[in-house]
Design a protein around this nucleic acid. Sequence first.
RNA 1: GGGGGUGUAGCUCAGCCGGUAGAGCAGCGGCCUUUUAAGCCGUGGGUCAUGGGUUCGAAUCCCAUCGCUCCCA
Length: 504
Amino acid sequence: MVGTNRGRVVDQELNDQMQVRRDKLKRWRERGVAYPNDFRRDIEAAELHRRYDQCEAAELDDQAPRVRLGGRLMSRRIMGKASFADLQDGSGRLQLFFSRDDLGEEAYAGFKELDLGDVIGVAGQLFRTKTGELSLRVAQFELLAKALRPLPEKWHGLSDPETRFRQRYVDLIVTEAARRTFRIRSETVAALRSALTADGFIEVETPMMQPIPGGATARPFITHHHALDMTLYLRIAPELYLKRLIVGGLERVFEINRNFRNEGVSTRHNPEFTMLEWYEAYADYAMAMDRCEALIRAAALAALGSTEIQYQGLTIDLGQPFLRLSVTEAVRQHHPDLAQADLRDPQILGDKLHQLGAHCPADWGWGKRLLELFEKTVEARLMQPTFITDYPLEVSPLARRSSEDPELTDRFELFIAGRELANGFSELNDPEDQAARFRAQVAAKDAGDEEAMFFDADYIRALEYGMPPTAGVGLGVDRLVMLLADQASIREVILFPHLRPEQT
RNA sequence: GGGGGUGUAGCUCAGCCGGUAGAGCAGCGGCCUUUUAAGCCGUGGGUCAUGGGUUCGAAUCCCAUCGCUCCCA
């Protein structure tokens, strides 16, 4: 068996290339320190390009900038007594020039013994080659860390998704697009954080392990605390804790952190995913939509420098005001055959669902049926940013009852590119109503609905102290990054997505 | 959960009407002082995912399992 095959790593036996590299390392060790820690660089590749790309060859020779760079050897063109190579660091690449005349016989031979992937430190002078490429004439170099395993092919890179995700370190070395995606992710999160902070929100961290998992309808992961001998759940949402903080007087709070849901894995779902939730006292869901819109715009500007983005071949304009329409309006647009009143008729909705081949349990009320119809037939078509509002009470156990219609809630969800990106509402701050909704959830759970909520008595107690009118929103950070980075799969925006364990 | 695709050298991929495995890159040896997918000559490397079956003979056909992947629920 060989070293790395289909992501399976067997350390005992080495293939020929790994054996050769190990032998080279052995020789290097015999000559001195094989893994030195005293090399210092004074600049990075991208900065050199910024400074000198516009500099003429003659001018560059006059200045003759001396620099020290660290990086990975990514390609080589050896022409007898002189060679070119490409060094890649965290910022980019720079071409290196090695020659026997500059380095001497022994050092030049040492260069030729290096392998692609080796991490080296180089020092020398910048110049421009005959073809005009900014390059470094290497005066000294040293091996900083040996690449004992060969890199993927220099032209095609790594294309097997399994290896890309299992060995993300290799993916990041060879896949520029992956590096870009995670830069976008970082800039997106930073933009969300700074926009909220600038508006007076404070960032908090609430429990990841909860005795009662709440804040969403989803199946939780279960774990056990040995010392306390108690069951704990990995959180499915931070919502109920964040609202306790609103009760406590932290009137603008947010949290960016992981949630865990014990559900299927797909291009849109990872068992652990990142959610931004923010809560603002003395605000309602319309104001929350405004803020949601502004945050997404700010993230796009920070990460991409534009509010007009390309997603999977589609142009999406985040600069225009997002469309707003109610669930019923949205459904009726796609089902002109249904009258307004039909959308409250469980029988008619059920017939429609059966007609579409969708499932529709008998105990579902009109609210669940309407939402199912919306999800099956409308959601995937909402390409441009669209807020869908006024969700049925039946499917919104934590949202405030609409003052105009007691069967609806002051709630919205945001859809872009056919995917749900955010969910927000005016919070239900009436403890008696909330307790009744919890009881309904518990009844559903007892009837076998594994996703239904638990009754959280402490949360009710908190509400009984009085929670100011509040609006809150949860925004799927991974999905936002997918949108901004133009990625079709959530695995592309999570550094180490969930995979089944590899077999040896 | 159901269905489709896929797994061959370190990497990217051919080979799949069954006849004992190939290319490019990477590696190794040689030539080469301005290349950039460098070039030229030579050369090593494979439990063809795993297990079973059909067959004189299986990378190729069949079944099962495992991984990945896409679609649907």
